Every structure is written in C-alpha cells, then in structure tokens.
Amino acid sequence: QLQQSMSAMTEAAAYLQTVGRDASSPAASGFYLPTTILNNPTFETAATMFITPDGHTAMYLVQSSLNPYSLQAMSLSQQMQQVGRDATPNTALAGSTVSVGGFPAINSDLRTAFNRDFTEIIIATLLIIAIVMCLLLRSVVAPLYLLGTVILTYLAAIGLGVLVFQQLLGQEISWAIPAMTFTLVVAVGADYNMLFISRLREESVRGTRIGLIRTVHHTGSVITSAGLVFAAAVMGMMAGSLLQMAQMGFIIGCGILLDTFVVRTLMVPAIAQAFGDASWWPSGRK
C-alpha cells in the first residue's frame, strides 16, 4: 500500500512539475489532471486537505523564492489576491471569494492598517505637543518653529537610517519603523527644546541676544548630557539580533543626537534670534 501511495503521489508530482515548467506558455493556461489520478484513493485522501467536504472551498499552496517578511512578498500577496478576483467574473466561480493567507498577507494587512493610523498618530502627537507648548509658554509663535525643527530632526534621522541600512548595508527599513520612531523622536526633541526655550524666556528680560548667551551657558551641559545618555541607551538596541530593533535604536539615537548637537545648539538659538520678541506673541516675554 505504501508503494502504491508513493507511486501515485510521484506520478501526480511529476505531472504538476511539467505543468509548472510550461506555465508561461499561453497554450498551457489552466491545467488538467488525468482520470487515473483523480480516481486514485491516495490522491483523494490528500485532496481532502485542500478541498472542504462540501466542495465549495479550495486551498492552493503558493511558494516563492522571496523573503516572506519582505515588502516584495507583501506586494506579491496583494497581486495574487487581485489576480484571483479578476479571474472569477464570467466563469462558474463568479461571485466567489478569493483570499490570501500566510505571513506576507498578514503583514500586508498590518502595514495597511498601520499606514492608515500613522497619519492619525502624527496629527494627534503634534497637536497635543503644540497645545502643551502654547499653554506653558503663553505663546503661539515659538511652539510653531520648535515643532518645525523637531519634525526636521525626525526626517533627518529617517534619512540616515535609509542611508545606512538600505544604501550601505542593503537591508530594507521595516515598514513599521517610521511610526514606531516618530513619537519618541518628536516627544524627546520637543521636551529638550521646551526646556531650552523656557529658560530663554526667563533670561530674555534684557534682550534676546543676552538671553540666548545665558541660556546656552546654563542649559548646555545639562541637556547635552541628557541627550547623550538617552541616545546611548536606545542605541544599545543595535546589539540585539532583531533587525527591526537595531533599526529603531539607530534612528531614535540619531534623532536625539541631531536634536542635542544641531537643533538645540544651533537651529533653535538662530531662529529665536531671528524672531526676537515676536517669539513670545501674543503674551510678550514678561
């Protein structure tokens, strides 16, 4: 019985391999199974794993050479589903449902939901931070350019991540990384800038220029030390074996370092000097 079963399965496998080799030919569209295979009890037993007892649902196993966790595999799962749906009209399968399962399909659905929610995350995060800044500073102008610098920091950090991982190392940035890093980079950057600008308002009684000098002098070492400690902590994630963790640690760490040494040290003081007393509108600096 075992020899007979192996013989029948070998015959079916050989036929399917032939179909696979000729699948690119228009003449080989569709497939045909000989009656001898369909009537084979062993083949019938194996078919029950792919066809429901009522005969209304069939499952196909599709294998590719792509990494199942890659963006290409997710795109392939979407294309397979669309091709299956486009093939059903004007056939006996019209009105049937075509679905794709497996890790690529699951990740594709998660990515779609994640991208949809990412816009809401950005809007909610920036809106909450802006409201808090406006209330604490009693100003509208300063919070706007502070948020602008933080967003630029985040974009620069993402750019560095793409440069290092995708261009230099040949590893794709995970589709979930931009949303996962956005909140941390923006929140920490806004926090450091808030500490700086709050001290600037206190020190600007005698003028913005003097206030900037005193603010940088008094807060420079504290904020710089905090930024270094936080960046070192998150970059420790790069020592892990998970690629997503390493990417997230690198991008967040780069964002914090950029905010500490470029944005808070150079950009914010320069913009504050350019706006002068207008930074504290409408309440004024006192």
Rank of each mutant, 00 (worst) to 15 (best):
A142V: 11
P143G: 12
L144C: 09
L146S: 05
L147Q: 09
L147T: 01
L152N: 09
L152C: 12
T153R: 04
Y154V: 04
L155T: 13
G159H: 09
L160S: 03
L163Y: 02
L163Q: 04
L169Y: 09
L169C: 03
Q171N: 08
Q171M: 07
Q171Y: 03
E172F: 10
I177N: 05
I177R: 10
P178W: 11
M180D: 15
M180W: 04
M180T: 12
T181W: 09
T181E: 11
T183W: 06
A187P: 04
A190R: 03
A190M: 12
Y192H: 12
Y192N: 00
L195R: 14
F196V: 13
I197R: 00
S198L: 15
S198T: 15
R199A: 08
L200M: 13
L200H: 08
L200T: 08
R201K: 15
E202N: 11
E202L: 09
E203S: 12
E203K: 15
S204Q: 05
V205P: 00
G207L: 04
T208D: 05
I210C: 00
R214F: 06
V216W: 12
H217P: 14
H217I: 15
G220H: 12
S221L: 15
V222Q: 01
T224D: 02
T224K: 04
G227V: 02
V229M: 07
A232E: 02
A232Q: 01
A233F: 03
V234W: 01
M237P: 08
G240M: 12
G240E: 09
